[in-house]
Each structure stands twice: as structure tokens, then as C-alpha cells.
Design a binder for these strands. Sequence first.
DNA 1: CTTAATGCAAACCGTTTGCATAGAT
DNA 2: ATCTATGCAAACGGTTTGCATTAAG
Lengths: 138, 138
Amino acid sequence: MNKNEIKNAGLKVTTPRLKILKILETAKEGHLTAEEVYKRLCDHHETIGLATVYRVLTQFEAADLVIRHHFEGGHSVFELAKETHHDHLVCVACSRVQEFVDSTIEARQQLVAQKYHFTLTDHAMVLYGFCARCKKEE
Amino acid sequence: MNKNEIKNAGLKVTTPRLKILKILETAKEGHLTAEEVYKRLCDHHETIGLATVYRVLTQFEAADLVIRHHFEGGHSVFELAKETHHDHLVCVACSRVQEFVDSTIEARQQLVAQKYHFTLTDHAMVLYGFCARCKKEE
DNA sequence: CTTAATGCAAACCGTTTGCATAGAT
DNA sequence: ATCTATGCAAACGGTTTGCATTAAG
């Protein structure tokens, strides 16, 4: 339950944190910017400041409840930390995000890291291009 | 020769553009932020505004003379466009950048794109971790 | 009651832009 | 002479922070 996730993170259970968690859970796109989270809160008639949204998302990130991605174009996107790791395809036209997993790529990354004596902590694998829909419209 | 590269890009051959190109060529690290380029120009006693550095780097990027990468942490880095494509390993402690190429990963990316009907225009593949030196110091 | 969390506005930082001046062709 | 490029300072957009107020434990 959400309350426990927040408690386990060592944070007090407050309305803003609960609402933000719910927004992320119910976002079918999965990936939202802080601004988008903020707008949805407004839509739901919640009065939560943008600063709080950033603060809470950052805390959730620190608690591994949320993952923050820095896609090209300056804005970060946040998604609920799911069980399974995955990477992203991003449409350069409509910004649609498609998740994918490729175990071959994952394995290769480890090999590359070993080759250069790096100990991986994280990686960013983002493919940019036109999605099927936007390709047509070109 | 540098003058021709600039001319071929449809740009006038000016001191700032020549100097910035030289800075990038002589940067052994290869990857510099706009700020770093600016500082080096100052070191060489050139009076070139930071705005010009950004403008020129952006023009060079448009002309495919330079590649801009958006690593995590908000700042972009620029590198001279080399013949060969490559990806990056970045040390999360010292920011050292190691280039690498893995044809298996490259091939797999195309497969993934096909699977989701994307036409790739670009990709970001950055591995983050501790380099050998920083790992020791932990 | 004590301490952490919020809202607001102001600060920040990297980057871009408007405008008058300087420079390239 | 014409038109692009530069420098400066001001604007910008996303994100963070200081501080007084409010709410959680």
C-alpha cells in the first residue's frame, strides 16, 4: 500500500506525497515530467506547489520509489520504479516513449564495462527516432 | 583545413569560429562543455563571449562538425565529429569519459527499433559507473 | 509538542536571444 | 556596401532553495 512505501522511505505520510504517488501509478504513459505531474494535480483540484512536486519526486528517487531519466531536450521525466529494468525508445516528433528490454544489449554493456575496468552503477540507453505514426506524417 | 570546414558549413571564417575549432581539436579529453571551451579561450587570451561559444557550437552541430551529448547532470558536452561513431562510459566520481564501440549493441538497436516500428535518427548509450582509479579510492 | 513538510517567491544555472556594434566578403 | 557575426546584458525554462507557516507523529 502507498502509505507503507512512503513510510519505509523514512518520510512522513502526507497528502502531497500520496497524491503524487497515485498520479504516477495511474499514468498509463508511465513517464511524466514534473510539470505534467503538477498539472494533473491541478486537474484533480489539489493545491500542491511545483516546488513540492520536485522535492517529493527527488525524495522518491532517493528512496528508489521512482526513477528519473534525463532525455534530450532539457526536461527530466519520472517513472515509478518497476520490478523490471528496461530502456527507452523516444519519438523525436511526438515524444512518445516506448519501453523495451534487450538482454543481449544488457549483457554486452557489462562486457564493455569490464573491458575498461569500470564498475557500472547505471546506464542510459535511449533510442531516438520517428515512431510509426509520425513517420507517416512526414 | 579548418577554414574550409567552416566555409563548407556556409559560415564566415571568423576568429571565434577558428579558435573554438582549434580548442576542440587540441582537447585530448575530447569532450568539453561550453563553459570549458570558454575558459580555455580565456586562458589563450581570447576575448570571446560565452554566448558566442554557444552560438558557434550550435552552428557546428548543425553542420555536423560537432556532436553534442546530453549527459546526466544538466550540462551538455561537445566533441569534434569523428569519422567513427562511438558511445560513452562516464565515471560518476571523476567525470572521466571513455569512448567505446560495440557492434553487437549497434546491431541490436536496429532490431529493437524495427520491432517497435521506429526509424532511428540517433541514440544515446551512456554507461555510468566508477572507473578503475575511482573504484580504488572508495 | 516537536520536528518534518509545504507553499510561495526568489535564486540558480545552463543556455538562448535582442540589439547595437564590429567584421567578413 | 552588404549582410553576417559578435559582445553584452537581459531573458528564459527547468529546477532548487530560504523562510515563515502548516501539518504529521
